[in-house]
Simulated scan of single mutants.
Amino acid sequence: MEISDDVDAQISQAFSNVDLALRDAGVKDGFKQVFSIKSYHVGPMDETVFASMKKNMAHWLPSHKPIWTQLGVAALGLPAMKVEIDIVAIDGLRE
């Protein structure tokens, strides 16, 4: 697996991965059901990181704003990783 060096590309890919996971889990309304986002970042949390997160949240969550916690960490699962996104969603449509 090749991981881009570009933090914006990694953040965009992370959101895409979350979308895939939500769909695979059968969450009918996907990101509309997300109520909490935690993003973990290696390296500086500068304007590039913040702007990319805001851009992706506006794209994937255009109709609501879940709780967002942004954390700086020393390392993630692979040395090249600069971001990891953890979400919590409720699929209220299941019985």
Results as ranks from 00 to 15, higher is better:
38 K>T: 01
51 A>D: 11
90 I>T: 14
55 K>P: 12
28 K>Q: 11
95 E>F: 15
67 I>W: 06
11 I>H: 00
20 L>I: 04
17 N>W: 13
50 F>S: 10
62 P>T: 13
35 F>Y: 15
75 A>Q: 03
27 V>T: 10
41 H>K: 00
69 T>W: 00
34 V>G: 12
9 A>M: 08
10 Q>R: 06
62 P>L: 13
95 E>I: 15
42 V>F: 05
77 G>D: 11
72 G>I: 01
31 F>V: 10
22 L>I: 14
72 G>E: 00
52 S>I: 09
90 I>W: 14
2 E>L: 06
39 S>C: 09
26 G>R: 08
34 V>Y: 04
5 D>R: 07
42 V>S: 04
16 S>E: 15
36 S>R: 03
14 A>V: 12
88 V>N: 14
73 V>I: 03
82 K>W: 01
46 D>H: 02
94 R>K: 09
80 A>F: 06
44 P>Y: 04
86 D>T: 10
90 I>K: 15
68 W>Q: 03
67 I>V: 10
31 F>H: 03
14 A>N: 13
72 G>M: 03
1 M>G: 11
57 M>D: 09
10 Q>L: 07
2 E>D: 07
10 Q>A: 08
53 M>A: 05
78 L>N: 04
1 M>K: 06
9 A>K: 10
48 T>D: 11
2 E>F: 14
65 K>D: 08
16 S>Y: 12
4 S>P: 13
76 L>H: 02
47 E>W: 07
69 T>V: 02
66 P>V: 02
19 D>K: 11
68 W>K: 06
13 Q>L: 07
59 H>S: 11
90 I>L: 13
42 V>R: 02
1 M>E: 02
58 A>H: 05
20 L>W: 07
8 D>Q: 00
44 P>M: 02
23 R>Y: 15
10 Q>Y: 01
17 N>Y: 14
35 F>T: 12
53 M>N: 09
57 M>Q: 10
76 L>W: 05
95 E>N: 10
63 S>Y: 04
81 M>L: 02
84 E>Y: 03
6 D>V: 07
44 P>E: 09
12 S>L: 11
18 V>F: 12
20 L>K: 07
55 K>Q: 07
90 I>P: 07
67 I>T: 09
29 D>T: 08
93 L>W: 13
8 D>V: 00
18 V>D: 14
66 P>D: 01
60 W>N: 06
70 Q>W: 00
10 Q>W: 04
1 M>P: 02
59 H>T: 12
72 G>H: 01
21 A>I: 11
81 M>W: 03
23 R>S: 15
29 D>E: 13
52 S>W: 05
72 G>V: 03
90 I>Y: 14
58 A>L: 06
44 P>R: 01
92 G>I: 10
32 K>C: 10
50 F>I: 11
35 F>K: 12
34 V>A: 08
1 M>N: 04
46 D>W: 00
28 K>M: 06
16 S>M: 10
49 V>L: 03
41 H>P: 00
83 V>R: 05
